[in-house]
């Protein structure tokens, strides 16, 4: 608030070459160190299912699985993912004609409308089911509350998680 002189591009472009595992394949790329992981996945690896909704860590549309755990990819630098394993929704199925059971459950329950939060919700659904946290609708609501959906009002997403849980033989959901 007291700065009177701006910094005039004082730092040169700095890059790093990183290797990581993405959706089951090893990839190696050279990236500018300030590049966010979300931008890297979208722009360098064409994984445009990673959506940018706020880029300050609130909306959750850029959620990915990092070593199996859901994280905001807008709040990581790409260089921080070196040596790690990343899953995006394409790891379930990237084929519209052969959906993964979770994706199929979302289609059956209409757990999406515009589709923008959907890849994040689908990945989170996978994690919730694996963690056994789809025991009741209330629990599902709590567990998906880190991802904003503006279209559905969430009920059909809750239904989709429960449907997917049944499909995958998870614990039978409570009413």
């Amino acid at each position: 608030m007291t700065t009177t002189e701006h910094q005039a591009a004082a730092v040169d472009t700095e890059t790093r070459t990183i290797t990581l595992r993405v959706n089951g394949r090893d990839v190696s790329r050279t990236v500018e160190t300030r590049t966010t992981l979300a931008d890297f996945l979208r722009d360098d690896l064409d994984l445009v299912s990673v959506h940018l909704g706020c880029e300050h860590g609130v909306c959750g549309c850029c959620t990915i699985l990092l070593d199996g755990e859901s994280v905001r990819s807008c709040l990581m630098l790409a260089v921080q993912a070196r040596g790690h394993e990343i899953e995006t929704v394409e790891s379930l199925s990237a084929d519209q004609n052969a959906l993964h059971p979770i994706q199929e459950a979302f289609a059956e329950e209409q757990g999406l409308q515009c589709g923008f939060c959907t890849p994040a919700m689908v990945l989170r659904c996978k994690e919730i089911i694996e963690d056994g946290k789809a025991r009741t609708d209330d629990e599902v609501r709590h567990e998906i509350s880190g991802i904003l959906c503006r279209c559905t009002g969430y009920q059909n997403i809750v239904n989709a998680v429960q449907n997917a849980s049944r499909k995958l033989g998870g614990k039978e959901a409570g009413a």
Binding site: A10, V11, E14, R16, R34, D39, H56, V79
Partner: peptide
């Protein structure tokens, strides 16, 4: 007024050390 920072949604340049 002279605007300086805070109009952005992509990180500025910096040296990264790990």
């Amino acid at each position: 007024y002279r605007t300086t920072i805070g109009q952005a949604m992509k990180p500025p340049r910096f040296q990264y050390r790990d």
